[in-house]
Amino acid sequence: MRKWLVNLRKEKNMTQAQVAAAAFIDRGYYAQIETMKRHPSPEVALKISKVLGFNPANFYSEHFSEPFNITLEDSPVTVAQCDLDLRYTWIFNPPPDFAPFSAIGKRDDELGYHPGSMEFMELKRQVIQTKAPLRKTIPYSLSDGLHTYDIFGKPLFDSKGNIVGAAMICTDLTQILKDNDRDRGEANEKVEN
């Protein structure tokens, strides 16, 4: 079952029949896509993604085994895309607080309202407004405490050159910063002795 697809459809208050009609496909075929009995063709994936507002790559990320995905899985790196309304359309390797695909269709303030989420949304806004890359370090509250992220955002354009959103790569620096602080403390102790 593609729970993320079912949840996204329900959040949009749509039935399977409504999604199928809007995507110009058979309702039965759409139902089989939700239950993973069938996989959509790239053309159908694109139609469904336009109706529900997500990146069609989500259909295929379930089956990735490329070196890119193997390398990033369980790493402190999250890669994501958002639309012009700052809603996630694709996310890979989200922080532990976010279940896979739970962020699709949502903004950061809907996932957790705190200063870090607001600052992250502002970074995305600036990337979209200026149509230029931007990098910033942002503290972000998660269930296990405050994390520090190095975030690089760049604009996303369609084939006609129109801006359609932003892409971000977020690296959790928290453990590195803790290790550096510990190492500095040990170095200072040695100097004092």
Rank of each mutant, 00 (worst) to 15 (best):
M1P: 06
M1L: 12
R2G: 11
K3E: 08
K3P: 03
K3M: 09
K3W: 05
W4Q: 06
W4K: 09
N7T: 12
N7F: 04
N7E: 13
K10T: 09
K10S: 08
M14V: 05
T15Q: 09
Q16M: 15
A22P: 00
A23P: 00
A23F: 00
F24L: 13
G28I: 12
Y30I: 00
A31R: 09
I33V: 15
I33K: 05
I33H: 03
E34D: 07
E34V: 15
T35W: 01
T35C: 12
M36T: 05
M36W: 01
K37L: 12
R38W: 01
S41N: 07
S41M: 04
S41I: 03
P42Q: 03
L46S: 10
K47G: 00
I48A: 07
K50I: 01
L52Q: 10
N55T: 06
A57L: 14
A57E: 11
Y60Q: 07
E62S: 11
E62I: 10
H63W: 12
F64E: 09
F64I: 06
S65V: 02
E66M: 13
E73R: 15
S75H: 08
P76Y: 03
V77T: 12
V79P: 02
C82D: 12
D83L: 10
D83A: 08
T89H: 02
T89K: 04
W90G: 07
I91C: 15
I91K: 03
I91P: 04
F92R: 06
F92C: 05
N93R: 04
P95G: 07
P96K: 15
F101T: 12
S102Y: 01
A103N: 08
I104S: 04
K106N: 09
K106L: 14
R107L: 04
D109S: 14
E110H: 13
E110N: 12
L111I: 06
L111R: 08
G112T: 13
G112C: 09
Y113F: 13
H114F: 04
G116R: 08
M118Q: 15
M121W: 01
L123I: 12
L123P: 07
I128D: 06
I128W: 07
T130L: 14
K131F: 01
P133A: 14
P133K: 07
P133M: 10
P133Y: 03
L134T: 04
L134V: 09
K136I: 07
K136A: 05
T137W: 02
I138W: 01
I138N: 03
Y140Q: 05
Y140D: 05
G145K: 02
G145S: 08
T148N: 10
Y149P: 05
F157M: 09
G161Q: 06
I163L: 03
I163D: 04
V164M: 05
V164K: 04
M168Y: 02
M168C: 13
M168P: 00
T171H: 07
D172E: 11
K178I: 15
D179M: 14
N180A: 14
N180P: 00
D181L: 15
D181M: 11
R182K: 12
E186N: 12
E189M: 13
E189W: 05
V191H: 09
E192H: 12
N193D: 13
